[in-house]
Amino acid sequence: MNKAVFLDRDGVINEVKTSRVKFVNKPRDFHFLPGVKEAVAKLHECGYDIFVVTNQGGVGLGYMTESMLKEIHRHMVEEFEKAGAYIKEVKACTHKPHEDCECRKPKPGMLNTLIEKHNIDRRQSFMIGDREVDIEAGYAAQVTSLMVGNESSQAKFSFKDLPEAVKWICEEKN
């Protein structure tokens, strides 16, 4: 079985609601947070499959199209690859926020689908997010949940940012 790290996108990988960008609705709005590319490359070196699982209700609400979202993700994956960081798959819930679908975090649908598809060992895997819905989705999928950028009473641990969380994973869990 494989071990994996599931990453939320906005607020973990890239800027959102900053002075430079409010929402990421176009590739030009996508700005990596400091040290993220290198951190994801380190996860790959430590033997983890890396997945991005993101709620993108802006598609369902009409703020962006499905094709624009795919373009944003293509851009993100290409930029990661240039840094030696490899994303195995990106999953996005594009339903409206209150549609009560099974894929929108805090429900574990996206994670469970990837876990089954890629033969992932839940006990050796992590969900890293910046909001409680990410933490809840991780626990619902039976992986260890880590919070970045915020404090969480639900997360196993909280970290300043993704590079700090990755350092802990690679040093403590390998």
Results as ranks from 00 to 15, higher is better:
2 N>I: 04
3 K>T: 05
5 V>K: 04
10 D>I: 02
13 I>C: 07
14 N>W: 04
14 N>D: 01
17 K>V: 10
20 R>E: 08
25 N>F: 08
32 F>H: 02
34 P>G: 08
36 V>M: 06
37 K>A: 01
39 A>N: 09
41 A>R: 05
46 C>I: 13
47 G>E: 14
48 Y>V: 08
48 Y>E: 07
51 F>N: 02
52 V>W: 09
54 T>Y: 03
54 T>A: 03
56 Q>M: 10
60 G>L: 06
64 M>P: 13
69 L>H: 00
70 K>G: 14
75 H>E: 12
77 V>Y: 02
78 E>R: 12
81 E>N: 10
82 K>R: 13
88 K>M: 11
92 A>W: 00
95 H>L: 04
97 P>C: 12
98 H>K: 14
98 H>C: 07
102 E>W: 13
103 C>D: 12
115 I>V: 05
117 K>V: 02
118 H>S: 05
119 N>A: 12
127 M>V: 07
128 I>K: 06
129 G>Q: 04
134 D>F: 07
136 E>W: 00
137 A>Y: 01
141 A>E: 03
142 Q>N: 13
144 T>C: 06
148 V>L: 02
149 G>K: 05
150 N>L: 07
163 P>V: 04
167 K>N: 14
170 C>D: 13
170 C>R: 10
172 E>W: 00
173 K>F: 15
174 N>F: 15
